[in-house]
Simulated scan of single mutants.
Amino acid sequence: MKIAVCDDNILFQEEIKNLLYEYFGRLSVEIKLFSNGMEFLRAVQSISNPFDLVFMDIEMPGIDGLETSRQLRKKNRDLFLIFLSSHTELAFDGYEVDAFRFLTKPVKRDKLWKALSDWEKSRLSEERICFNLGDRSQVLSWSEIQYIQSENVYVNVVTVSQRILVRMKMKELEKKMPESMFFKPHRSYLVNLKHILSFDSKKIRMADGLEVPLSRRHAAEFRNRMMKFLNR
């Protein structure tokens, strides 16, 4: 994922960059640093893939963070913005540009962690996929999919309200889905951690009652992933 930090304080840039690496891991996130609004807007125009999340300092010389965000919103209404400022009274300015969160400086580690966790939940719940079913297409959000079962060149996609059969290989679908939401406990299944009702060392029980086998070599990894998911 791509994250931008737009702040005129170089020391703060490095501080929040290190905190983001600590939270996500260096290999799973690309962080770009910008010192003013104009520099950031020029970069956005030249980048083909937009940022997933932007940390925006409200008070900057030249174009401040609020005006930078106004211009950004003209091109991207869906981008997640987190405003930064040492003045709490400026938090209300974020409503104008639909900021996701406001963090006061200096940023506290637990407050940042909470904001990132909430952002991940919002981001994952909004992501969608379109399945081609031949004569029609079916659009689903990842969050409503309970589990996926492989059947040779087909997959059964099971949601809370329906089951659809899609001509697609499991590996192809696995590349598209949000990694932190799904787990592969067995070569024939992908389960949504959100829809797990109970589990032990040998099986996982889904919300609809299905018991999915949990292979011994994946048991420890599954427990760690499940605990991390529940404690977000």
Results as ranks from 00 to 15, higher is better:
residue 1 M to N: 10
residue 3 I to C: 10
residue 8 D to R: 01
residue 8 D to P: 01
residue 10 I to S: 05
residue 17 K to T: 14
residue 18 N to C: 07
residue 22 E to N: 15
residue 23 Y to V: 06
residue 29 V to G: 01
residue 29 V to S: 01
residue 30 E to M: 06
residue 30 E to L: 07
residue 35 S to V: 06
residue 37 G to H: 12
residue 43 A to Q: 09
residue 44 V to Q: 04
residue 44 V to L: 01
residue 44 V to T: 13
residue 45 Q to E: 12
residue 47 I to S: 05
residue 47 I to L: 08
residue 47 I to G: 00
residue 48 S to A: 05
residue 50 P to L: 01
residue 53 L to W: 03
residue 54 V to H: 06
residue 54 V to W: 03
residue 55 F to D: 02
residue 60 M to S: 06
residue 61 P to V: 00
residue 64 D to G: 10
residue 69 S to W: 00
residue 70 R to D: 06
residue 71 Q to R: 13
residue 76 N to E: 03
residue 77 R to V: 04
residue 82 I to H: 07
residue 83 F to M: 09
residue 84 L to Y: 02
residue 88 T to H: 08
residue 89 E to W: 11
residue 89 E to F: 13
residue 91 A to C: 13
residue 94 G to C: 10
residue 94 G to E: 11
residue 95 Y to H: 13
residue 95 Y to N: 10
residue 99 A to D: 07
residue 99 A to G: 12
residue 100 F to A: 06
residue 102 F to N: 07
residue 107 V to L: 02
residue 107 V to Y: 02
residue 109 R to H: 10
residue 111 K to Q: 11
residue 112 L to M: 14
residue 113 W to E: 14
residue 114 K to C: 02
residue 114 K to D: 12
residue 118 D to N: 11
residue 119 W to G: 04
residue 120 E to K: 15
residue 120 E to A: 13
residue 120 E to L: 14
residue 121 K to P: 00
residue 121 K to N: 06
residue 123 R to M: 07
residue 125 S to K: 11
residue 125 S to N: 13
residue 126 E to T: 15
residue 129 I to Q: 04
residue 134 G to A: 07
residue 136 R to G: 03
residue 137 S to H: 11
residue 138 Q to K: 15
residue 141 S to V: 07
residue 146 Q to N: 14
residue 146 Q to C: 14
residue 147 Y to T: 03
residue 149 Q to R: 09
residue 151 E to M: 09
residue 151 E to D: 13
residue 153 V to G: 03
residue 154 Y to P: 10
residue 156 N to Q: 12
residue 157 V to T: 05
residue 158 V to K: 08
residue 158 V to T: 06
residue 158 V to G: 02
residue 159 T to I: 05
residue 161 S to V: 10
residue 168 M to R: 15
residue 172 E to Y: 10
residue 173 L to C: 08
residue 173 L to P: 13
residue 173 L to I: 06
residue 174 E to A: 09
residue 175 K to W: 06
residue 176 K to V: 15
residue 179 E to V: 13
residue 182 F to P: 03
residue 183 F to Q: 00
residue 183 F to V: 02
residue 185 P to S: 04
residue 188 S to R: 05
residue 193 L to Y: 01
residue 195 H to V: 04
residue 196 I to H: 04
residue 198 S to E: 07
residue 198 S to Q: 08
residue 199 F to W: 14
residue 203 K to T: 08
residue 203 K to E: 10
residue 204 I to R: 05
residue 208 D to L: 03
residue 210 L to D: 10
residue 211 E to C: 08
residue 217 R to E: 13
residue 221 E to H: 11
residue 222 F to Y: 10
residue 223 R to S: 10
residue 226 M to T: 05
residue 227 M to F: 14
residue 228 K to L: 14
residue 230 L to D: 03
residue 230 L to M: 14
